[in-house]
Design a protein around this nucleic acid. Sequence first.
RNA 1: GUCCCCUUCGUCUAGCCUGGCCCAGGACACCGCCCUUUCACGGCGGCGACACCGGUUCAAAUCCGGUAGGGGACGCCA
Length: 467
Amino acid sequence: MSELRVRFAPSPTGYLHVGGARTALFNWLLAKNKGGTFILRIEDTDVERSTKESVDAILEGMKWLGLEWDEGPFYQSDSFPLYKEYVQKLLDAGKAYKCYCTSEELDAKRTIAMEEGRKPKYDGTCRERVDQPAGQPYVVRFRAPKGGVTAFDDLIKGTITFPNEELDDLIIQRTDGTPTYNFCVVIDDATMRITTVIRGDDHVNNTPRQIQLYEALGFPVPQFAHVPMILGSDKARLSKRHGATSVIAYRDMGYLPEALMNYLVRLGWSHGDDEIFSREEMIQKFDIGNVGRSASVFNTEKLNWLNAHYIKNGDPERLAALLLPHLSKRRVTTRNGPDLMSVVRTLQERAQTLEEMAERAVFYYNPPTSYDDAALAKFDKELLLAVFAAVTEKLSSSPATDTAEIDGLFKEICSEKGWKMGQVGQPIRIALSGGTQAPGIGEIVATLGVEETVRRIQRVREFVAVK
RNA sequence: GUCCCCUUCGUCUAGCCUGGCCCAGGACACCGCCCUUUCACGGCGGCGACACCGGUUCAAAUCCGGUAGGGGACGCCA
C-alpha cells in the first residue's frame, strides 16, 4: 500500500446519484491505481436532514457498482467531541472568536449587501469584540487572515487563486454547539490522513477557507482534485427532472453495473480513443490528470449502447439470474417454460437493457393471446393455412432440435413448396410470439421445443381458419 | 452584484502543456447502402466542431490579450 489515501464523503440526505457515483468512482480508481486506501465517510453533521435510509441507499448503490471501500464507513456524528476539542483549540489560540450576531441580523445585512452589489460576506462585527455577554447564544467564527491570497494547485483544474479579501470569517460552530461542514471536513481529512481530496466542482470555493483552516490548525494541506459536474440535456445541473439520477434506479431499469461504470468513467475522462473499459483496464489506465476541466452532459443513448455491449458479451447464466426480477415484475414464471439461459442467448443481441430483454422474453413463457393482425393480413388465408400445415408436418416428422437443423428444415419447406423464406418465417413468428419482432425462427423453435411450437401453430391455425 | 471556473461535431471526447504530422481523429445518436425470414447484431459510407475578435509567429485548435456565453459559489446546508 502506498501512502495515498482518498475518501468519498457523501451526505446522507438522499440516494446515491450518478454524480456522486462518478466522484466515488474516481476516488476508487485512483486508490486502486496507486495501491492506496479508499475511505468512506458519511457526512451527517446536519442531523435534521440526515437519515438512516439514505445511508443504506448510498451503501447499496456503491455495493452494486462494486466500489468497495477499504476503511469505514465513518460517521461524522460520532466525532462531535473531536470537533469540539479543535474548536476550543482555535478559540484558545485566538484563531477563532465568539460571535453574538443573530441569524436575523445576518440575513438582513446579507440582503442589503446583495442589493448594493457588494459581496454578502460577514462584516466582522464581533471579530474584535472583547466583552463576552454571559448567557447570550453565540456561534464560533474562524478568524480568517486578512490580505494576501490563498492558492492551490488543483490536480484537475490547475492553479486556482483567491484573494483573501473575498473570504469572510466562517462559522465553525453553530449556536447549538454543533460543528459546521467546512470545519468537520478539515478535521476529518486531516485526522484520517487524507492525501488527496477528490470531490465535486461545487467545492472549489470552499477550498481556500479549508486551506486556511488546515494552516491555522497546523495540519499538512492535502492535494485537491475538483471534478466537473454532470449536466442534463439542457446543460443545467443534472436533476430529477432530467430523468433518473439514482444509481439504483438504473439498476432497476435494467442496466448492468459494468455498463454504468464504463459510462461514468468516460464522462469527463478518456484514454486516447478507448471506449470500452473493464474494471481492470480502467484501474490500470486511470490518471486523475486526464480528467477534463469542463462539465459534461449525461447522455442516455451512449449508456444504452454500452449496456447493449455488455449484455451482448455477457455470461448467459449471470444475465439469466439478473433477468429474474424483471420477469417477475411482469408476473412471468419460468418454471414450466424453456430454460432461461437458452432464452437469454436468443435475446442478448437484441436488448439494450434487461427490462427490454424481459419484455421480449415474455412470449416464451406466456403463449400469445392475440396476434398482430396487420402483420397477418399481409398473407392470404390459404397460404397461411398451407404454411402452418406444412411446418407442423415437417417438424413432427423430423428429429431436429437445434437451431441450425431447424433452420435447415424451413429451407427444405421453402424449396419443396416454392415459397420464399419471408412467406414462411413471418407467419410462424407471429404464431409463436404473437408479433413480428422476435429472434430467428430456428432459435425460437429450438428454444421453445417442437412440441410447444406445434401446439402454438395449431392455435393460430384455428384463429386464422375462422376469420 | 462579487468572486471562482469553463468553452473542439447534437452529445462524450482525442489533439492543446512540448505551435507545423489537424482544411481536426474516435465514439454515441442520426442518415444512406450492404447483410437478412422479422427485430436486432454486424460491415461500409455520409452528415457534423476548434465560441468570437485581435496579437505573436514563416506557421495557432494549440501561445498571449480582450469580448461573449455558460456554470458554480457567496447559509448557524453539505
